[in-house]
Nucleic acid binder design. Sequence first.
DNA 1: ACCTGACCTCGTCT
DNA 2: AAGACGAGGTCAG
Length: 281
Amino acid sequence: MKRTFQEINIEDTINSGQVFLWEKKGDEWYGIDGENVLVIDEKTRKFRKKNAEFIFFRQNDNFEEIYSCLKKDKIVKKALDAFPGIRLLQQDPFQCYISFIVSSNSNIPNIKTRLQNLCRKFGEKKIINSNEFFLFPKSSIISNAPISKILDCGVGYRAKAIKEASVAVTDGKIDFDNLKNMSYYDAKRELVKVFGIGNKVADCILLFSLDKLEAFPLDRWMLRVLQKYYSKKFEPSSKTITDKTYEDIHQKVVEHFGKYAGYSQQFLFKMERELNNKKWL
DNA sequence: ACCTGACCTCGTCT
DNA sequence: AAGACGAGGTCAG
């Protein structure tokens, strides 16, 4: 049977570089999303908690329109054909925010361990189907925690950033509902004020939790993809990726890929990671 | 404005 | 089995 674009592929989606706290038990996927544990059956793809999972997997998006838009680019079309079931996710903003701060200059196994440690130390325990889970900590808990306890989670020098970012939320300097209502550009300007958040991390937060589909995180993988498949089209104006260079590339990217650039990024990222045999979970 | 180096940790790889 | 390496970046000079 041929798979249509309407069918979501849970495994590919979970393994496309957006989330860190998901695991499969039997036929079911369990994922920590803020103070929720999401559950989804891989075979039936039936959501138990309709609202939460429905929103998480962005089931309100008009995939027909999005895909017909994405297919205009040959390379993206190739990635789309290879992984048609991938969806962008809409995550709990605070978890996403902390997760990508933790991700900087690190690798997947370490990021995952650190986030699990944070949940175990600061999050509430919850039993589901006789499985034990730890929810993602509330911002107030981390913002009041001593640095030493955050350090115990193996986050290294990121501890200060984790704490400060949490304080920014409890102080109201960062208000995710507000950011959602702002333009991509304005919301990003607010995010990068937070210590530990640069261009790439801000774009991840915007794309994966704040509904900004024109965000296009430029990490080392995406820069490689742009250079490999698009040659000089997105050539950086300087050797190092400065703020200005990053912004230049992003502008060209949105011009080229369109308003759903973030979706394009997701397919391209998955394709390239898979080519290099990089496992996510 | 651009460039360079330092940076905690720990899972992988020799 | 111990030691080096380097990873989805960011910040400070």
